[in-house]
Amino acid sequence: MHLEARRMGDSLIVRLKGELDLHSAEAFRAFVREQLAASDRIRNLILDLRAVPFIDSSGVGAILGRYKEIREGRAGRLIALGPRVPVRRVLAMSGLLRVMDIAETQQEALAMAKEGKRVP
C-alpha cells in the first residue's frame, strides 16, 4: 500500500493507494500515528480512499483506531474522501458511517472539516 500525507490547516489528508487489509493495516496505523504526533494542531483526519479497492476487518479496525484518536485526543472529525462502492459498503456494514462522513471531493471534505462539527 502506498501512503501520502498532506496538512491543510487543522486537517490532515492521508491518501491511500491499494488494499487496506491485514497486511497493510499496520503500516497505515503507524503512518497516521506518526503524522498526527508531529503536530497537536491537527484536529481533523481526511482519508482519501479513492484509490482503495478493498477494505477488510483489519482495515476497519485501523480506521476505528484513528477515529478514537481523533475524537478523544483532538475532538476532531473523521472524513472519508470518495470511497468506491465496495469500500463504501464495507464502511456502512461495519457501522463506520455512523461516526465518519463521506465527501466526494477534497474541497467538500475540507469544507466539512472547517464546519468543525464534532462527531459523536
Partner: peptide, 13 residues
C-alpha cells in the same frame, strides 16, 4: 446491522 463493534462508542446502537 450497520453498527460499530463493541468498545468504540459509549452507547452501542
Amino acid at each position: 446491522a450497520a453498527n460499530l463493534p463493541v468498545g468504540i462508542l459509549t452507547r452501542v446502537d
